[in-house]
Design a protein around this nucleic acid. Sequence first.
DNA 1: TCCGATTTGTTCGTATGTATG
DNA 2: GCATACATACGAACAAATCGG
Lengths: 379, 379
Amino acid sequence: MQTKYNLIKQEIKSKILDGTYEPHQKIHSESEMMRQFSVSRHTVRLAVGELVNEGWLYRAQGAGTFCADRSNHTENKELRARKNIAIVTTYISDYIFPSIIRGAESYLSEHGYQVTLFNTNNNHDKEREYLENIISQNFDGAIIEPTKSAYSNPNINYYLNLERLNLPYVMINAYYEALEPIRVVVDDERGAYLQTEYLIKRGHRNILGFFKTDDMQGTLRMKGYLKAHREYNVPINPKHITTYSTGEKCEKPARELREKLSNKEEGPTAIICYNDELAMKLLDVLREKKINIPEDLSIVGFDNSFLAELSEVKLTSVNHPKADMGRTASKLILSLIKRKQQGKGAKEEVKSVIYTPELVERKSTKDLTSSGEDVENVN
Amino acid sequence: MQTKYNLIKQEIKSKILDGTYEPHQKIHSESEMMRQFSVSRHTVRLAVGELVNEGWLYRAQGAGTFCADRSNHTENKELRARKNIAIVTTYISDYIFPSIIRGAESYLSEHGYQVTLFNTNNNHDKEREYLENIISQNFDGAIIEPTKSAYSNPNINYYLNLERLNLPYVMINAYYEALEPIRVVVDDERGAYLQTEYLIKRGHRNILGFFKTDDMQGTLRMKGYLKAHREYNVPINPKHITTYSTGEKCEKPARELREKLSNKEEGPTAIICYNDELAMKLLDVLREKKINIPEDLSIVGFDNSFLAELSEVKLTSVNHPKADMGRTASKLILSLIKRKQQGKGAKEEVKSVIYTPELVERKSTKDLTSSGEDVENVN
DNA sequence: TCCGATTTGTTCGTATGTATG
DNA sequence: GCATACATACGAACAAATCGG
């Protein structure tokens, strides 16, 4: 069965096999081969098409047809399963995480990818297990929220291996500093600075700060809180700062707040919270103590979650991009995958995204400098 | 990329996946498809050619084109060696869905399975696309919340094909009646009966009902509402019932409520809501109209979601198992998988679970029979 | 076994659309 | 903006294999 297109096919394949065509080298254009072999364009396309299907060539519209790089294990084995992205987060169903996941899921599914979820519960062992899964299966990429990002990570080797295996990943919300990965994060230090500055400008001097310090977000937010104090020359009372870990979040902050409220000596006028979730917990304490918000005490949250609007006290908070963060991380992952597929011709640089946060004013703070509660016109 | 050949390709692939074409069955000839789709032979050949390349079809010169048999197509069995469950829901990040998904995810991951999410947005086309994915990859099982379960489903063939392919699935929240699938649902009729009975027993006679009627839950809840009225001999005013579809949920119920409140003739004393989410929307209307809850009007929600506790009016609602439903559905799926692996020696029968709902009393209803607001001691 | 209708396989020609450099 | 190169789509013709009568 020596058909014309088969002849052309063999001709091209020979040139690949004998090294005439090197990986990523452009081969003759269709019109040129028409002349060379004196056949119609259709016949050339048939020959080239089959070689593309068999993985010997790849085509790029407008650019040309190129010799594929078969050095890697691109054998027939991988029939390109289905395009699959892993999302690893500390939680999946609480707080802002559903929004982040929805943002990612919608963007990825629009682009023909499907999403598999992994939930570490902020546990290093789980994180390791899932990283092993991701490496051993053929995921095309991963969006990862690091576990306990403030601590040194025992799984750092797995992340390094991801890089060695050329498996693209993007970190969200935080990152392990040693890795310097592509990431999508909020400028948490700036966010807490805004929280603090806002209160200081409204005359607050005794501001309690509650920070979860086992993740990077919490330590940066504490840093922002301190920085604002320094820059506005407001002395910092160490007793005003409470730090806690994930495991302690249900008890310790509430307990500490109760204590600090009973020691009436230097009564705080405001509270800065690690996030809205904590703010809710502290509001429960304040309700129990019959303290009115914002008349008796001001409180500011972080993340601008649905909690900020649903509580009886509409909470002033710092904006978190949520669904947009998921979408952005997804975009970056797809860019990284594209860059990987194009080989070293990486013209497009993929850059981390750092969101600059903004304060969302609601009704949970009092202006101590003016007479009334005219909050809007002060800034 | 809506090219003609791609459309034809998808059309054919759908017929393979929904079972219209069985393995080794002859599909339409090229000339027939030319007529069917009104395209040239070239276009048909392009579509068929790609499907042949992907292993869905095979061609035999002179004989025809046939559906391939993929049953023992162990192409990438090793890659997909990992145990994988698909979860298809109408939404993933809103309302009670994160809880359901968390329940399922935690149980499945404990048992070594991983979870891939699909979100239909209550759209039949999306549902079809995802069912195609699930069939064409080798998922071990699927947990599915049906899309628009009150309507006849255009994808019913896909579900039948799941059964023929022996791919276990469990439906949650609702089900297509024709299929009689293994399912985990709430007794919605009973739930709405409880809502209504509760109000009737407290002296309410004019009870507005708002029901989303494009899913089974809504139609059953309306049925329970009617049943309670009949059993307690309370006449039903047809004007008191509002039905709406998913697309209308943001506008129509609020508009209808406004209308019904302005017609003061036979003022309603209570509202029964399809779910808590709707109750929130209606509470906005009531707040705007300066109507106090529960003094002026009682309101009851459904699902006992976080919304019921976070609003300023603590909402009496009907309990939905949420995370427990996810866990239970996961258990059933793993049982089905186990039964499948054991072959016909199916000693263990897998049975559907129907949750009997309970009313969760909070502060959104008034007792018209007694003098005060002594709600607790009446029942 | 051969015939003829049907069906897929190969090849030509032509035109327009779209991405790249 | 322009030429180049691949992508999609129409039409036509003949070859080769299959299958029922």
